[in-house]
């Protein structure tokens, strides 16, 4: 059977969509609006986010977000007529997502 590699990218894209459309807005809503500003203290948030598992989770969320954006960008460019460059566009898009994830890891673990 001729396997398309697309399920890998598509599932990451889907997971990124869930992060972007559900988890991120929920986090923003909770930390930015629902919890009173004086209750959100930098030291407490920092203590939570600098735990090893939390750092990994942050990088994971960033990874899915960037892959989602890369996948969308790739298919949008192809849809607007750049189909002939589909291969290079895909390569550059996903490499950019990986580079941005590396940057996120530097920030999260820095």
């Amino acid at each position: 059977m001729r396997r398309s590699p697309e399920p890998v990218f598509w599932s990451l894209f889907s997971a990124g969509g869930v992060v972007l459309a559900l988890i991120a807005p929920a986090l923003i809503l909770a930390t930015g609006f629902l919890v009173p500003a004086e209750r959100v203290e930098f030291d407490r948030l920092s203590a939570i986010l600098t735990q090893p598992l939390a750092r990994i989770a942050v990088v994971g969320l960033a990874f899915l977000t960037f892959v989602h954006a890369a996948h969308r960008l790739r298919h949008t460019l192809v849809d607007v007529g750049l189909r002939a460059y589909g291969g290079p566009i895909a390569t550059v898009s996903y490499l950019a997502a990986l580079a941005l994830t590396a940057w996120a890891a530097l920030v999260a673990f820095g």
Partner: peptide, 20 residues
């Protein structure tokens, strides 16, 4: 199913769709 999926699950099948 398996006879159809070779074609429908290929790049010319469902994976060409960008869910417009």
């Amino acid at each position: 199913n398996s006879q159809r999926h070779e074609l429908t699950w290929s790049d010319e099948g469902i994976w060409d769709c960008t869910f417009v």
